[in-house]
Amino acid sequence: MDRLKGKVAVITGAASGFGEGMAKRFAQEGAKVVVADLNASGADRVAGEIGAAAVACKADVSNRADVDAMVKLAIDRFGRLDIMVNNAGYTHRNGDMLKVDEKTFDTIVAVNMKAIYLAALAVVPVMEKQGGGSIITTASTAGLRPRPGLAWYNASKGWAITATKSMAVELAPKNIRVNCLCPVAGETGMLAQFMGEDTPEKRALFRASIPLGRLSTPLDIANAALWLASDEAEFITGVALEVDGGRCI
């Protein structure tokens, strides 16, 4: 249980869902974790359940001062920063692309796209001084195989995948690996928005489109992120890893 021993991670959107799963799994494997989320009480709960290896941080990932403070907290509390997980995400409800209001669109851009840029500004200089690091973004199968009803969300996740690959090439000489995860929809608070509504019938239809026959879980995504963050993946960069039960085949 020490695959991340001695490493420090910042995980955004870590008060619930995939981010909570990553925070707890990383800590199980020896990492110190900054549990960052706009939901301060949720971040406090997750950090409290982890214990001394974690610290909570209220952060708006679309705000540069908040992102800088989040990174500073990791260094002040734990002395370094090895892993940055851009997990916070936002979506519009499944439906007509022309009925997505401008405020919702702007939030999608800010959380799913701009936040990756701001995190890079904050963490790349730190990681370069340390001799390397790992940046992981939670993208989506929607960025690989867009489907009707989530047009602007799909586009934001396609951007995240291209940003991952671009950053990977540019940062490789600094020994900073950059990868992203492409989960299929899972048991998180965003599921109802992805499906339009959360009903047994909608879930059955969605499960039927996944060859392995179930939705993703936070542990599925956490285990994939754990591998990408660990030294076992030291030669892996620029990858958009599908964690989808075969959905994209």
Score class of each variant (00 low, 15 high):
residue 2 D to L: 13
residue 3 R to C: 04
residue 3 R to H: 10
residue 5 K to P: 09
residue 6 G to R: 05
residue 11 I to E: 03
residue 12 T to K: 06
residue 13 G to Q: 01
residue 16 S to K: 15
residue 16 S to P: 08
residue 17 G to A: 12
residue 17 G to R: 03
residue 18 F to E: 12
residue 19 G to V: 05
residue 19 G to F: 03
residue 21 G to K: 02
residue 22 M to T: 01
residue 23 A to S: 14
residue 23 A to Q: 08
residue 26 F to Q: 01
residue 27 A to R: 05
residue 27 A to I: 08
residue 30 G to H: 03
residue 30 G to E: 09
residue 32 K to E: 13
residue 33 V to P: 04
residue 35 V to Q: 02
residue 35 V to N: 13
residue 38 L to T: 13
residue 39 N to I: 06
residue 41 S to Q: 15
residue 43 A to M: 07
residue 45 R to I: 15
residue 45 R to S: 07
residue 48 G to A: 10
residue 49 E to Y: 04
residue 55 V to A: 12
residue 59 A to M: 13
residue 63 N to V: 11
residue 63 N to I: 11
residue 64 R to Y: 14
residue 64 R to N: 13
residue 72 K to V: 12
residue 72 K to D: 13
residue 76 D to R: 06
residue 76 D to N: 13
residue 77 R to I: 05
residue 78 F to R: 00
residue 78 F to W: 08
residue 80 R to D: 11
residue 80 R to H: 15
residue 81 L to P: 00
residue 82 D to G: 05
residue 82 D to T: 08
residue 83 I to A: 02
residue 84 M to T: 05
residue 87 N to K: 02
residue 88 A to M: 08
residue 88 A to Q: 06
residue 91 T to D: 01
residue 94 N to T: 01
residue 96 D to T: 07
residue 96 D to E: 10
residue 100 V to H: 03
residue 101 D to H: 14
residue 102 E to G: 11
residue 103 K to Q: 10
residue 104 T to A: 11
residue 105 F to E: 03
residue 106 D to R: 09
residue 109 V to M: 13
residue 110 A to R: 12
residue 111 V to D: 04
residue 111 V to N: 06
residue 111 V to G: 06
residue 112 N to A: 02
residue 118 L to Q: 03
residue 120 A to D: 07
residue 120 A to M: 14
residue 121 L to K: 14
residue 122 A to Y: 08
residue 124 V to L: 09
residue 126 V to F: 12
residue 126 V to L: 10
residue 127 M to W: 02
residue 128 E to T: 15
residue 133 G to H: 03
residue 139 A to W: 02
residue 140 S to L: 07
residue 142 A to I: 02
residue 144 L to M: 15
residue 146 P to M: 04
residue 146 P to C: 12
residue 148 P to N: 13
residue 150 L to E: 01
residue 150 L to Q: 05
residue 150 L to P: 00
residue 152 W to A: 10
residue 153 Y to Q: 01
residue 155 A to N: 01
residue 155 A to F: 01
residue 156 S to M: 07
residue 156 S to Y: 04
residue 156 S to D: 06
residue 157 K to D: 08
residue 165 K to V: 07
residue 166 S to P: 02
residue 166 S to N: 04
residue 173 P to T: 09
residue 173 P to D: 01
residue 177 R to P: 02
residue 179 N to R: 06
residue 186 G to C: 02
residue 187 E to H: 02
residue 193 Q to R: 15
residue 197 E to A: 10
residue 199 T to R: 08
residue 206 F to P: 00
residue 208 A to Q: 14
residue 209 S to A: 14
residue 209 S to I: 11
residue 210 I to W: 00
residue 213 G to K: 05
residue 213 G to W: 08
residue 215 L to C: 10
residue 217 T to R: 01
residue 217 T to D: 05
residue 218 P to G: 09
residue 218 P to A: 07
residue 220 D to Y: 01
residue 221 I to C: 07
residue 223 N to H: 04
residue 223 N to S: 14
residue 224 A to D: 06
residue 225 A to R: 07
residue 226 L to K: 05
residue 227 W to A: 11
residue 233 A to T: 07
residue 233 A to S: 14
residue 234 E to F: 14
residue 234 E to H: 14
residue 236 I to S: 13
residue 237 T to D: 12
residue 239 V to P: 06
residue 241 L to Y: 12
residue 242 E to M: 06
residue 243 V to L: 14
residue 243 V to P: 00
residue 246 G to S: 00
